[in-house]
Structure formats: C-alpha cells, structure tokens
Design a protein around this nucleic acid. Sequence first.
DNA 1: ATTTATGCAAATCGTTTGCAAACCT
DNA 2: AGGTTTGCAAACGATTTGCATAAAT
Lengths: 146, 146
Amino acid sequence: MATPDPHDVAAALLRTADQRYTRSRQALIEVLATADAPLTVDEIVDREQSLALSTAYRNLVVFEECGVVHRIVTSDEHARYELDEALTDRHHHHLVCSRCGVVLDFTVPDPLERELDRALEQVATSFGFDAEHHRLDLVGRCASCR
Amino acid sequence: MATPDPHDVAAALLRTADQRYTRSRQALIEVLATADAPLTVDEIVDREQSLALSTAYRNLVVFEECGVVHRIVTSDEHARYELDEALTDRHHHHLVCSRCGVVLDFTVPDPLERELDRALEQVATSFGFDAEHHRLDLVGRCASCR
DNA sequence: ATTTATGCAAATCGTTTGCAAACCT
DNA sequence: AGGTTTGCAAACGATTTGCATAAAT
C-alpha cells in the first residue's frame, strides 16, 4: 500500500461534503503537504502568496470540517495546521517549544501506542465520552531555544 | 505526606519570585482550588465577583510564570486555567469536548504513565529538547454533547 | 445561469496595557 | 514613604464576516 496522494484524498473528502477542490484549496494542500511541520496561517500565505489571508482561514475551516486538516493550538498565539493522517499515513505526536512555539513531529513505539489506545478507550467509556482522537504532546525548550 | 495547602504552596512559589500573595491572588487560588475542572477566566470572575477581569488575567500570567498554574488551550476560543501539580498532588490528563470545549480530568494506570515517561525522555534526547512536561488529551464528545 | 468561492476592508472578541488610585510592607 | 497591585477604559491582534466580484459546474 503506497502513500496516498494528498490531493486525491483531499478532493475525495471534500466531494463527500459537496465542496469543490478549487485552485486555492489545491494550493493550500500543496503547501501543507510539502511542509515538514505544522504551519501557522501566516507561514502558509508566506509560502503561497497567491492566497489571501481570509481565503486561507476560510478554507482551513472547511478542511477541518471535512477531516482534511487538524488545527493545533499550543500556548502560542497562532494556531497551526497540518494534514490529517488520512492524507499522510503517519500517526504522530508533537514536540512543542514553550519559548518559540515551534511544533515538531515524533512517534512512539507501536506497542506503547496500542497500550495507550486501550487505556484511553476505557477512560472514554467510563466518562460516557465519544472519543474522536487523542493528542500526546511533549512540551519543553527546542534545541534552538534551550 | 498529606496533600499540601494550595495557598501555602502558592505563597511560597510567589515569594521565591519576589511576588506578593495579595487578597486578589488568594481569591484566585481559592476559586481554582475549589473547582473540579480547569476554568476559563470568565468562569473565574463569575465565581469571585470581586475580581476585575484585568486583575485575573494579570495574576494568571504571574502565576504561570511562577509555576502556580497551567494555562490550557484546546480548540476553544477561551483559555482555561488549573493549579499546578505542586498544589494538588495529582498528575492527570484531560478529556476535551470538541463541541462545547469543557475539560475534564482523568488519570491512567501508573505503569503506563511510567512507560510513557521513559519513551518521551528518549524522544526529547533525540531531538535535543529540554523536556518540561507532557500532555495527553482525549478529544471527543462529552456525555452532554454526544 | 446559478451556485459557490474569493478578496478586500471592516467588525469581532479574547486578551493586554496605560495610567491614576488603592494597597502592601 | 516607596514600590506593587488594582480597576477602568482604551488598545491590540488573531480570526471572522459582509459584500461585491470572479470562478466553477
């Protein structure tokens, strides 16, 4: 099973929600697909200057509703966005720098991840929660800020 | 070892940073200590009407700098605050409702927590990160919103 | 042709800040 | 007294939104 093309997956997810896969949206996905870490909206429009700020914001909302991207908020004043796992095939977690706000990806060993899933499932059940996903962040000083 | 008095710990932490433990600050700690979940600033000033909004915000910043409270941001538009573990003696994680934004506390079994710590330590090392703490959130629909 | 998306500029809203008065030690 | 903290109102800044135009089907 090869890694899917993010554009194909995005287009399909959008179509399901009766949404078009316009040029702006393609450009947005392209930027996120070629990024190596979650980006802020400013960073996104910097990399693709044809995108108006409001268009970026609006489409990111649509993307989130369709499960195409995830919005990540840390303590930083800027939210960050990344493609959903359906577009990247890579379950991961985040290192968050408490000083500069940068976010990096990491993974944990599969067995631990499964153990975590099991434990969280129990928690959800006992709280009457309908679990959607989990987040595991490691907060600290990044190499440049320590 | 008994659970410490949050006021004593807060006062001590503040003193270390040459900060006073004023009436406003005591009231703020009292509200957080009697809450059963992280609160937004609005919720805080609702419960203690003597607190001006700006005073609450300003003191929460001071508290955070002194390690007295933690600021929690989810996807919600309001940040939430809770006492640091030094004041509560209770390491826990958060259930976050993706609809209403409410945050609830939960714990995982000790062995899993320790395994997690070990794994995160390795991650931090490999990234040259100076780890401060970790966060584990379970995101979904709470019992009232599902 | 009709519906949906875009861009600009203005509005929103949580949070921050300037400044004079109140407070603490 | 002398430096801090507080409260009010004004400022800020990231995000959202109204509306007229452009794009997509």
